[in-house]
Design a protein around this nucleic acid. Structure first.
Length: 499
RNA sequence: GACCCUAUGGUCAAGAGGUUAAGACAUCGCCCUUUCAAGGCGGUAACGGGGGUUCGAAUCCCCCUAGGGUCACCA
């Protein structure tokens, strides 16, 4: 079998969409699985909407995900250039050939005229198709039309009869009647090729063997096949992967929250998790393991196991997988990942001191199985880095308001002030002994302390928390809590009573 | 509107004529436990509807319904 060559061909008109990322992933997986070649090609023929910023953005997202390409921007390759805007001569040349052979023709109809005809067709309830108005123009006609200042487009002559068959790896044999197609435009009046045309020219020129793309292109495929035939090109294999839908079954858009890889990154998702989740959306491994590293996905990937049905993406499952990687990946890696997020929240300096990094490492170690994203991780370690926190209201009611709360904290303070060595096993031992002496449950001592030193009712084991926080800081916070209980709290309660 | 694709729990999804219809997320309960997580165990929950074919249909065929996609000088 010939060596697999596949491509991802985004148009740079925005960020890398989650659906686009999955299309890229499936192409990349097939290439890596078979030892083939993964090509990145930028389809920037829409001069109105394409931007360099989008190119940069898409490239950066692909790299971040780890989807590296063997040919394409930045690295070149045998079949470049890999920007369609730099391949215009090719499209022109082939278009001229088609015209010369009588397989395509110049059309001078203006967008306005066409729009009017479409409108008319719609009103009559007919399919809005091009009527072949310019199909049989004489040279004389063309001269006259050009003299009117009309810039022609090039249209392909589509046979009125017969059918065009798409042999799709995922969907099987899909038949389209040629009569439902019309003479579509292959070169715009500004000289730029249209998608269906440029795509065919390049896919062939770049010797691609498999065209794996989203299902929305299935209906375009007969047009492309007609083009392959007109050009005398051999067909590649097609595989149309199902779409990714929003929870309400509609097309994914901004109002559904994060839709681009960049946004997920900003929300604190790891590339490993996104890749793993995306692979599972539309593809399934043979066994029942779902969480698997990229190497294994590469090993097991097969187009045959890609499903036909559109999938609704489920952030909850993504979050769960992310949580998994958050606690399973090496600690240093997670620390490195969370640093920018800490900085963003002002909890860490731009160039943090080694002591702070050590604290962060230990804090992450202690808390990471409680977070699902890096943003959550920041939240869950925040009190190690800032004294500026409020007490959780629910906790205050439960642990600070009841009579004797201050006394409980004085007991805690005494223990923490004197325990030696200041290690969690020892602190715990003393806590438990003291509770017994006082004839109360250890929890009676533990919860108020936790609230005092962290402001929270939830978190890692209290004794490890206190050890990491340190004796000094713990005592300081307990003092603060005692004065809160004995001074601020009564005042607050009085104020509420007066209302 | 025309054409095309699709249809298994709330979501992802296995299944390719005979299964007690997997598994995962979510959800609920229990265990563990200083809390919350994590982890372990268990529960609730599905073949869109109607016709065929067959000894036998989630699996094959037809119709309906529903959802999605395409009909651009966007890709």
């Amino acid at each position: 079998m010939e060596k697999v060559r596949v491509r991802f061909a985004p148009s740079p008109t925005g960020k890398l969409h989650i659906g686009g990322a999955r299309t890229a992933l499936f192409n990349w997986l097939l290439a890596r699985h078979t030892g083939g070649t993964f090509v990145l090609r930028i389809e920037d023929t829409d001069t109105e909407r394409s931007t360099q910023a989008s190119v940069d953005q898409i490239i950066s997202s692909l790299k971040w995900l780890g989807l590296d390409w063997d040919e394409g921007p930045e690295i070149g390759g045998e079949y470049g250039p890999y920007f369609q805007s730099q391949r215009l001569h090719l499209y022109e040349e082939k278009a001229q050939e088609l015209i010369d052979k009588g397989l395509a023709y110049l059309c001078y109809c203006t967008p306005e005229e066409l729009e009017a005809k479409r409108e008319e067709a719609r009103r009559q309830g007919k399919a809005p198709r091009y009527d072949g108005h310019c199909r049989n123009l004489t040279d004389q006609d063309r001269v006259r039309l050009a003299a009117e200042g009309r810039q022609p487009v090039v249209r392909l002559k589509v046979p009125a009869e017969g059918e065009t068959v798409v042999d799709d790896i995922i969907r099987g044999r899909v038949v389209f009647k040629n009569e439902v197609l019309d003479d579509f435009i292959i070169v715009k009046s500004n000289g730029m090729p249209t998608y269906n045309y440029a795509c065919v020219i390049d896919d062939y020129a770049m010797k691609l063997t498999h065209i794996i793309r989203a299902e929305e292109h299935l209906s375009n495929t007969p047009r492309q096949i007609l083009l392959y035939q007109a050009l005398g090109y051999e067909l590649p294999q097609f595989a149309h992967v199902p779409m990714i839908l929003a929870p309400d079954r509609s097309k994914l858009s901004k109002r559904h929250g994060a839709t681009s890889v960049e946004e997920f990154r900003e929300e604190g998702y790891l590339p490993e998790a996104i890749i793993n989740y995306l692979a599972l959306l539309g593809w399934s491994p043979e066994g029942t393991d779902e969480v698997m590293p990229i190497e294994r996905i590469v090993e097991e990937f097969s187009i045959d196991r890609v499903s036909k049905t559109a999938a609704i993406y489920d952030v909850k499952k993504l979050a769960w997988i992310n949580g998994h990687y958050l606690r399973e990946l090496p600690l240093e890696r997670i620390v490195a990942e969370v640093i920018p997020f800490m900085q963003k929240h002002g909890l860490l300096a731009a160039s943090p001191e080694p002591a702070k990094l050590e604290l962060l490492t230990k804090a992450v170690d202690l808390t990471r199985d409680r977070a699902k994203t890096l943003e959550e991780l920041v939240d869950v370690v925040s009190y190690f880095f800032s004294d500026d926190f409020e007490y959780e209201e629910k906790g205050v009611r439960k642990h600070f308001v009841p009579a004797g709360a201050g006394e409980i904290l004085r007991q805690a303070k005494e223990i923490i002030a004197s325990v030696e060595p200041f290690e969690h096993q020892v602190i715990e031992e003393v806590y438990r002994t003291r509770a017994e002496e006082l004839g109360i449950k250890p929890a009676k001592l533990i919860h108020p302390t936790r609230l005092a030193v962290s402001g929270r009712t939830i978190g890692p084991g209290l004794f490890e928390l206190v050890e990491l926080l340190g004796r000094e800081k713990s005592l300081e916070r307990i003092d603060r809590a005692i004065s809160f209980i004995e001074q601020e709290l009564p005042a607050q309660i009085a104020a509420n009573d007066n209302k």
